[in-house]
Design a protein around this nucleic acid. Structure first.
Lengths: 349, 349
DNA sequence: CTGAAAGCGCTTACAG
DNA sequence: CTGAAAGCGCTTACAG
């Protein structure tokens, strides 16, 4: 087995002490230029790579931050991670990505692993109640920032999006377009984000009680494209006279799945059925029928979470903060036809 | 800062030595039941979580395997990772996912990070030449298995797919369906997988020289859905008389992007234009027009790579092996209409 | 079955 | 500016 080269070998080669090698590695100043050059030459010649376990054990600080998300294949989450990486990279920290797959068991397993590693911090999009686990993490010196979610009791920093308002906007828009039977598509899980979007949807209906109408809740197995196909199938099974004329999907993957499945069954979007998604991932605007979507500032979400983490790590008098970002409704073709005007026989584009 | 509870604290609490606590943690036998119970109680009461840095430093072995892929948002790669996880989890190893984003700089940065961590091993889908970096990793005792790629000189284990044959099958199928002008859609990068698929495509044309026809190479910025849209645009810019009637895409995301973009421009798939993808990700069969695709055994790929890694780690007389898996052409609707019969005016379904 | 001791590869004050 | 020494939290033979 490759008996790894240690700092001691480098020191011997360069004719200095190990402390000096360590200084070359860790400080930009305080080492004579000529000494530094000699050490650096030895490092190159010996292919030395510092052992991070030893460094971390002694210095008591990791240089890794983990980003734990619900679904790595969802571009929304990788965009968030990318924003975090941008900020953390600048602070000399590396980011590793972990995928809970919206599974509490997997989430716990990762949190255990990350605790054993004593990572510097965790940005987590939690599945299920997380307060206790955050406490455990803090006990081990690991700062945690909640992403796309918030902590009721202020026991951790969080960056979330005003999802109630986002849900409200989506429904208000669909009501404005003349729709009265609207489906909300969510998951079986208890993600608070989805719950908030549903709440906003209900509120919008309440405030527009006068207009009548009805909100139908659909549940799918996973918040993915195939979940969207599932939702479309459910919609198509409803007799035409009770069938909703529009859907508000709790994310864009679902919306894309619905769009595809409905199209392939000859249902025209938006003329026969309107769709509004959530997240505004890149694919949304590029869909076969460009998708209306409630945009979340994904990159910004990651950036701010990273900044809060750095702030918490650097300050022992830290006060947890709850940042809440606003959404923006982006109207595109998938919801652009007025339902009432269509009913009256307006030309289809 | 939470002055973390150490094995020493646990030992004191349980009234034993630290060695005994370590034995409880690491061995299933050799500790008296009653002693074990006392130690376990102390662990729970103190919320002790082992410090992996210390463990790794002393025992010289990490329990982490990294899977470094080109694109975490591509379900093909997460499926591969999931297969690896299945096998490695059974061996008590944890998997972390790293995303090179098909960027050599990012790839190098991750390899450096993983070397500093002295991870147990790396499963890598490489971008660019990787032989030197594999040598560096081995020098630090890190086993590396190439995924979806192979090492010419046998300097590492690898699990790849017979992409030349896969490309051949795709083109043969399209030729069989009567197509004569066919586009191959690849990326700008130098991923060997894509190069092999192109090579197979060319071979198929050579072997069917008698039939005439022409293979057109299209290049897109990234092997993603938006890359596919780009390719569709390129195709549409070609004057009708020279325009290809079919495309073989180097992965399914590209194929999905093309499908969507062409459909939205009124080009019917497969009647006006046939598409064959690669990977057979779950979304392929569920597309608005179900996608023909060259299936790679993704999960199997990950599983075998993991097994090779375990084998290498457990055996010092290890001989590197190159596993090569075969593909399977899955014909669905996107390429199902015979081009010649359509020309002759056959009814469209 | 259990304890005492060495040591993994680093960083960090502290002298000089 | 550089070196010598302590020690981070574990595991691992080795005694007993």
């Amino acid at each position: 087995m490759a008996s790894s080269v240690s700092i001691k070998d480098v020191a011997a080669r360069a004719g200095v002490s190990v402390g000096t090698v360590s200084n070359v590695l860790n400080r930009t100043d305080g080492v004579r230029t000529e000494t530094r050059a000699r050490v650096e030459a030895a490092i190159t010649e010996l292919h030395f790579v510092r052992n991070e376990s030893a460094r971390q054990l002694r210095s008591r600080r990791s240089r890794i931050v983990a980003v734990l998300v619900l679904d790595v294949t969802n571009p929304f989450f990788t965009e968030v991670a990318s924003g975090a990486e941008e900020v953390l990279g600048g602070a000399g920290l590396s980011v590793v990505l972990c995928n809970s797959d919206t599974d509490e068991v997997r989430q716990s397993r990762y949190l255990q692993l990350l605790t054993e590693q004593r990572v510097q911090g965790i940005l987590i999009v939690p599945v299920g109640p997380i307060a206790k686990q955050v406490t455990q993490l803090r006990r081990h010196g690991i700062s945690t920032v909640l992403l796309d979610s918030k902590m009721m009791d202020g026991a951790a920093c969080s960056v979330s999006v005003n999802d109630v308002d986002g849900g409200y906007r989506a429904i208000q828009h669909l009501l404005d377009m003349g729709h009265r039977r609207i489906a909300f598509v969510g998951g079986k899980g208890r993600e608070s984000q989805v719950a908030d979007r549903a709440k906003g949807a209900h509120l919008a209906f309440l405030h527009h009680r006068g207009t009548g109408g009805e909100l139908l809740s659909l549940t799918v197995r996973s918040l993915t494209i195939s979940g969207g196909c599932e939702a479309a199938t459910q919609v198509l099974e409803i007799p035409a006279e009770h069938r909703p004329t529009a859907a508000f999907c709790s994310n864009d993957l679902i919306a894309l799945g619905m769009l595809r499945e409905l199209s392939s069954h000859g249902v025209a979007v938006p003329d026969d059925f309107a769709i509004v998604g959530y997240d505004d991932i890149d694919y949304a605007g590029a869909a076969s029928v460009p998708l209306s979507s409630v945009r979340q500032p994904a990159r910004e979400l990651g950036r701010i979470a990273a900044e809060l983490l750095l702030e918490e790590a650097g300050d022992r008098e830290h006060h947890h903060r709850q940042a809440v970002l606003e959404t923006e409704l982006v109207v595109r073709e998938s919801s652009a036809t007025s339902h009432t005007s269509r009913r009256r026989g307006a030309p289809k584009r």
